[in-house]
Design a protein around this nucleic acid. Structure first.
Lengths: 338, 338
DNA sequence: TTGTAAGCGTTATCAA
DNA sequence: TTGATAACGCTTACAA
C-alpha cells in the first residue's frame, strides 16, 4: 500500500531521516563543520548522494542572512559595452572566478532612468556585495551605496567625496605617458591626441598622461580631440582633426577601438602609418592587434582585473582587510607604429 | 529609555505595523493583488515609502516556491566568447530584457570538468528556468535537464533525441545558401568555404547551405576547410587552403570573425577582393563592417534573439503556450564583396 | 476585503 | 559531538 514518492526535491530533513541523524547534523555536514564524527559524516554523505540532495538557497540565506550572491552592476548607458573588449574580458574574468567560489553572480543592468530601482535592490539585502563596472560619472550614487554594502569598483569612480571607495585600476596616467613618450622617442614633435570621455577617470587620466609626456619634452599640448572610446567616435574625431587642417606627425589615441576608427580615416585620407604619422594607443585587444599596421599600445591585464575585483569583494564580505586601491600592472607593447 | 533602532532593514511586518494593517494585506499590495481597498493600498504604500522597504527575496521565494531568477548558462569552453560579438549581443539583449521584468539574471559558467555541478545547481530549485547559450555538442546533458526545468536554448541544440527542446535560432541553411548564391550571381565558379565547427548546429547548417547553393548551380562542393569561428582559425584555414594550392575564385566564410582572419591572409598573399576572389560571410558585426573591403554578409537580429529567449522562458515558467522553435529573420547585406 | 495561522527549508542557540 | 527548538521574512489557504 505504501508508495514511494520520488517526485519531490529532497530536503535536508529527508537526508536526515535517511542518514538516521538530526537535521542539525546534516546542516553541519553541508557547511563542513569540523564537529562531526566520521561515521555521521559518512552516513550523511551517503544519504545526500543517494537522494541527490541540493541545499535550497532561499532557505539557507533566509536563515543565515547571507545570500551567497554578488551583483555585477552595469550602468545601462554602458550596456552596449558588451561589444567593448575591455569590459567583455573584465566580466569574463569576474564570472569565471566567481564560478570557482560558493558565490553566484547576478547581472544587473542599471536602468538609466531609475538607478534608484537598482540601488534599492542592492540595499534590500538581496546580495552580499556588488561589483560596479562603470563608464560614466553617474557612479556617485553607487559610491554612497558603499556605506551599506561591500562594493568594489572597476576603475576609479568619479566621486567628489571618496575616502573609502574600493577599486581596482591601472595607472592610466603613467601608462599613457609612457606610450606617448614612445612617439617622442621616435622623433615626433607635433603630437596630437584623441582623448576619451572626460567624465570617466580613464578618459581624464590618459589625457593627463599624454600632457605629462609632452610637457617633459617641451612639446605643446594643444592638439586635442575627444571621443567616447568607440570606433565611430575615433573616426569622427580624426576626421574633425584633419578637416581643421591640424598639422601633426604623432598621435596618441586613448583606446584601441577609437584608434581603429581613426586609422581608417587616416588610410582613406592617404596618410601612411608610421611613415607620415606615428600612432600609438591604449588596450591590446583585437583592434590594436589587427590594425594595419598593428599598433604600439598599452596592455592591461583585463581578465585579472575582473578576478581581482571579485576576490577583493569576497574579502570585504568576509570582513577581512582589503587595500582600498589595487593597481594592476600594464605593459607597453612596441609594434613600431610610433 | 526607549531608543529607536533605525539600523535594521525594514520587514514586511514593520510595514504592516506602520500602515496599521495585517501582514497579509501588505503582502497583497506587494504582489499587486486586486483585492485591496484603496485606503489600505494607500496606507501600505505610504508605509513602504516611509520605511524604504524592499521585500526580501530569500523569504519570498522560500514561501512562494519561486525564485524569480533565471540562469544564463555558458559552457566554459565557450566562455571566451565574451569576445565574440554574436554572443556578447545576445547576452546583452537577454540581460536588458530581464531587467525590465521581475526576474533576475544569474550568470553561470559551466565548468567543463563538472557540468554536473551546474546541473545540480539548476535542478536544485535555485532558479525558475535556464537559458543555455551553447557552443558545442555537450548540450546533450542540458537537453535532458529540460525535463525538470523550463529551458530555452540559443541556437538549435545538438541532441540525439530532441522532441521538446525549446530554442530560438535563425535559418542558417537558408541564409548561407542565399549569400553563397550571391557569389554565384557574380559569376564565381570555383567556390570554397571556410566552415565552422561541425559539432555545432550553426557550423553544420551553414556548410549545408553552401552545399545547397553550389548544387543548385551545378558547381562541385569539394573545397572545404574548417575553423572554430575565431579570427585565428579563419586565418589558419585560409593559409592551409592556399598552401594546398587550391584554386578558387569565390569564398564563403561561415563567420565574420573567421573572415577577418582569412582576409588578412588573402591580403598578405597578394589577393585582391573582390577582383581576384569574391568573399562573403555570416554576421554583420564589426568584423564584417570594417574589413577591407567591407563584406557582403548575413545579418542576424542578435539582440532580439536574446530578448526572445527570455520572453519564451518566462512564458514557459508561467505555464503558457510556447512554440518549440522560434526562427528569427536574417537579412542579406550586399556590399559588393562577392 | 481582511486577518489568522501554518508553513517554506535552512541555520543557530542552547542543552544534553 | 549531537539534537530540540526557535527563528529567518514572506506567502497562502482558510476563516471571518
Amino acid at each position: 500500500m505504501t508508495t514511494s514518492i520520488p517526485e519531490a526535491t529532497p530536503t535536508l530533513e529527508m537526508v536526515a531521516a535517511v542518514a538516521g541523524v538530526s537535521r542539525s547534523t546534516v546542516s553541519r555536514v553541508i557547511n563542513d563543520s569540523p564537529k562531526v564524527t566520521p561515521e555521521a559524516l559518512a552516513a550523511v554523505q551517503a544519504a545526500i548522494e543517494k537522494l541527490g540532495y541540493v541545499p535550497n538557497r532561499a532557505a539557507r540565506s533566509l536563515a543565515s542572512r547571507r545570500t551567497q550572491s554578488i551583483a555585477l552592476v552595469i550602468p545601462e548607458n554602458t550596456a552596449k559595452f558588451f561589444a567593448d573588449p575591455y569590459f567583455a574580458t573584465v566580466i569574463q574574468g569576474a564570472a569565471m572566478y566567481v564560478s570557482s567560489t560558493e558565490y553566484t553572480l547576478t547581472l544587473l543592468i542599471a536602468a538609466e532612468g531609475d538607478a534608484e530601482k537598482t540601488r534599492r535592490y542592492l540595499r534590500g539585502g538581496n546580495v552580499d556585495g556588488a561589483l560596479i563596472l562603470s563608464h560614466h560619472s553617474d557612479d556617485l550614487s553607487y559610491v554612497a551605496l558603499a556605506r551599506s554594502l561591500p562594493v568594489v569598483f572597476g576603475g576609479r569612480p568619479m566621486s567628489q567625496e571618496g575616502p573609502t571607495a574600493y577599486y581596482v585600476d591601472v595607472d592610466n596616467v603613467h601608462a599613457a605617458r609612457d606610450v606617448t613618450a614612445n612617439l617622442i622617442a621616435h622623433g615626433r614633435t607635433r603630437i596630437a591626441t584623441i582623448a576619451g570621455p572626460q567624465d570617466m577617470a580613464a578618459g581624464l587620466d590618459r589625457l593627463e598622461g599624454w600632457r605629462l609626456a609632452l610637457a617633459e619634452a617641451g612639446i605643446p599640448d594643444d592638439l586635442v580631440e575627444y571621443g567616447d572610446f568607440s570606433p565611430d567616435s575615433g573616426a569622427a574625431a580624426m576626421t574633425k582633426m584633419l578637416d581643421r587642417g591640424i598639422d601633426f606627425d604623432g598621435l596618441f589615441v586613448a583606446s584601441a577601438q577609437m584608434a581603429s576608427g581613426a586609422m581608417q580615416v587616416l588610410r582613406e585620407r592617404g596618410y601612411s602609418v608610421p611613415d607620415d604619422v606615428g600612432v600609438v594607443t591604449f588596450d591590446n585587444d583585437y583592434f590594436a592587434q589587427t590594425s594595419r599596421p598593428a599598433l604600439t599600445t598599452i596592455e592591461q591585464p583585463t581578465t585579472e582585473v575582473g578576478r581581482t575585483m571579485v576576490s577583493m569583494l569576497i574579502r570585504l564580505i568576509d570582513g577581512l582587510h582589503v587595500d582600498t586601491i589595487t593597481m594592476m600592472p600594464t605593459r607597453l607593447i612596441d609594434r613600431g607604429s610610433a
